[in-house]
Design a binder for these strands. Structure first.
Lengths: 137, 137
DNA sequence: CTGTATCCTTAGGGATACTG
DNA sequence: CAGTATCCCTAAGGATACAG
């Protein structure tokens, strides 16, 4: 699967965002990194939505290309590859939190998934700080 | 174009949201209704991203099916069709505002589109109230 | 103006085998 | 474990003609 240069439909900021992650998979990877502390290919692959490996590889490459994510060798195990969010990627947290809160309000199924809804509800501002400091630490 | 029932990949709230509007067009229609006071088919069709009419009709039908949007005859002109956001649709405003702010921060092109960035920046909380009261009024 | 319908092309993506 | 590669099918979507 060849990753082409990102399109550019208009100068609208919403359009820009959608051109980058307006699909059904990209934000799930961001979610895994942001809220579930996942950082390895295999961990993304085993998420319950079952992304297939070719799509996963494609999306990781795009995210790296857009500098939302870095890809590096684990310092403690050189053969281990580790993905991490850049500050550009971490800054998606507020948007994702609002998305979580909206779904929690309107969908009873996702409201049952308490994994990070409670965090998101407690304090939107504080959560962002938490996520960032955890990512640094 | 047949609109099928929405998929359900998992109980995750982010996955739920993406299953509803995780594509390149749906949120642009919401944007037009929320920030540009558009309410007619023709107005959506003339947005600069140039959605084609079959996709537009499909997305409007889905949004109506998900009760994010209502479709009614204009009370002042019975032949005129008017689309409006439900409260469920209006509640997407905070998420879209965060999306706008993120793009404004990281994309110089969309930062040049001042249409609603300034509003979004001034006061996130107040903007939501403004949008809702404007929609009611 | 508000759509529908049709044609056609491409991108998305599932399944799975394979490799270093 | 971390991917690549291939096969193949379907959904997405552009263009455009047509209809009420």
């Amino acid at each position: 699967m060849q990753t082409r240069e990102p399109l550019r439909r208009s100068d609208c900021p919403i359009s820009y965002a959608l051109d980058l992650f307006g699909d059904k998979w990209t934000l799930l990877i961001i979610r895994d990194m942001l809220f579930k502390q996942k950082q390895r290919y295999g961990q993304f692959a085993e998420s319950e939505e079952k992304i297939s490996t070719n799509i996963l590889a494609d999306r990781l490459a795009r995210l790296e290309g857009e500098e939302l994510v870095t890809k590096e060798a684990d310092p403690e195990n050189g053969r281990q590859v580790v993905y991490a969010l850049t500050s550009k990627g971490l800054d998606l947290a507020p948007m994702l939190i609002e998305m979580i809160l909206w779904s929690a309000k309107y969908d009873r199924h996702s409201a049952a998934d308490r994994t990070f809804i409670r965090k998101a509800m407690s304090d939107r501002g504080q959560l962002v700080k938490d996520v960032k400091s955890r990512a640094r630490g």
